[in-house]
Amino acid sequence: MPFEQITLTLADGRCAALLARPATPRPGHPGVILYMDAFGLRPALGAMAERLADNGYAVLVPDLYYRVADHGAFDAKTAFQVEETRVRLRALMAQTPPALTEQDGPAFIAALTEAGARGPLGAVGYCMGGGRAVVAAAAFPDRIAAAASFHGGNLATEAPDSPHLRAAAITARLYVGSAGIDAGFPPDQSARLAEALRSAEVDHIIENYAGMAHGWAVPDHRVHDRAGAARHWTRLLTLFDECL
């Protein structure tokens, strides 16, 4: 079914979101929070939500920048190539740290519940949303049974709010798909994340998509790769099918 645009009322303001409902819900009525990449809400993310809905999941895509008025969406093909928009994007990302996931999560979960997702939830994030999905799994272990990050950045840094530091609280199965070479998630971060997840006995896979660039899975991104995106969908749907 086509996605719809809704507005959520949160403590820090009104949050625009995209909502896709399944024509035929899966048994158990599962749902998914799809955490956006850096470029904001736009039709490409709505299309991804619709694909998940076509597989039986209710899907919410919240605007993680909702605290900043009049930010709009960005062209995923050019935004980081132009100085003015690159500066704006980096400022927006800096104002949207992973810690806000725990603050916003109850409202996102409530919206999915109202949309009919009364069962277990999945979380998936792209780019900056990848860290959000990991933190959500740690913050809401009673609801989130599976989480995935694709070309997520800063998943295991030395910052005090780095997502990998929440590993001990994760009970969900976790999948991390990384770009072949990604400055936002270099080998040392991958090793640090793997150590944290193994030490916490988290059921997880970290998979490197050799030859893929950061952003390959999102259809309107300038480095979108059709074969790589298809592989990402196989991994994501398998994860959700098995866990939700």
Score class of each variant (00 low, 15 high):
residue 4 E to Q: 15
residue 8 L to H: 05
residue 12 D to E: 15
residue 14 R to K: 15
residue 18 L to R: 12
residue 23 A to L: 13
residue 26 R to S: 10
residue 34 L to P: 01
residue 37 D to A: 06
residue 40 G to F: 05
residue 45 L to I: 07
residue 51 R to V: 06
residue 52 L to K: 02
residue 61 V to Q: 12
residue 63 D to Q: 11
residue 81 Q to G: 11
residue 82 V to D: 13
residue 84 E to R: 13
residue 85 T to L: 02
residue 87 V to A: 12
residue 87 V to P: 04
residue 88 R to P: 00
residue 90 R to P: 02
residue 102 E to I: 02
residue 107 A to M: 01
residue 111 A to M: 06
residue 111 A to L: 03
residue 113 T to C: 08
residue 121 L to P: 04
residue 122 G to F: 04
residue 125 G to I: 04
residue 126 Y to K: 03
residue 128 M to H: 00
residue 132 R to F: 14
residue 133 A to W: 03
residue 148 A to S: 10
residue 150 F to R: 00
residue 151 H to K: 01
residue 162 S to E: 03
residue 164 H to W: 09
residue 166 R to M: 07
residue 173 R to S: 12
residue 175 Y to W: 11
residue 175 Y to G: 06
residue 184 G to A: 12
residue 185 F to M: 14
residue 187 P to I: 07
residue 188 D to P: 04
residue 190 S to V: 12
residue 192 R to Q: 13
residue 193 L to R: 10
residue 198 R to D: 15
residue 199 S to V: 01
residue 199 S to H: 12
residue 200 A to H: 10
residue 203 D to H: 13
residue 211 G to P: 03
residue 212 M to N: 02
residue 216 W to D: 02
residue 217 A to L: 00
residue 220 D to M: 05
residue 221 H to Y: 14
residue 222 R to S: 14
residue 227 A to S: 12
residue 229 A to Q: 08
residue 230 A to Y: 07
residue 230 A to R: 14
residue 238 T to A: 13
residue 239 L to C: 05
residue 242 E to P: 05
residue 243 C to L: 06
residue 243 C to I: 06
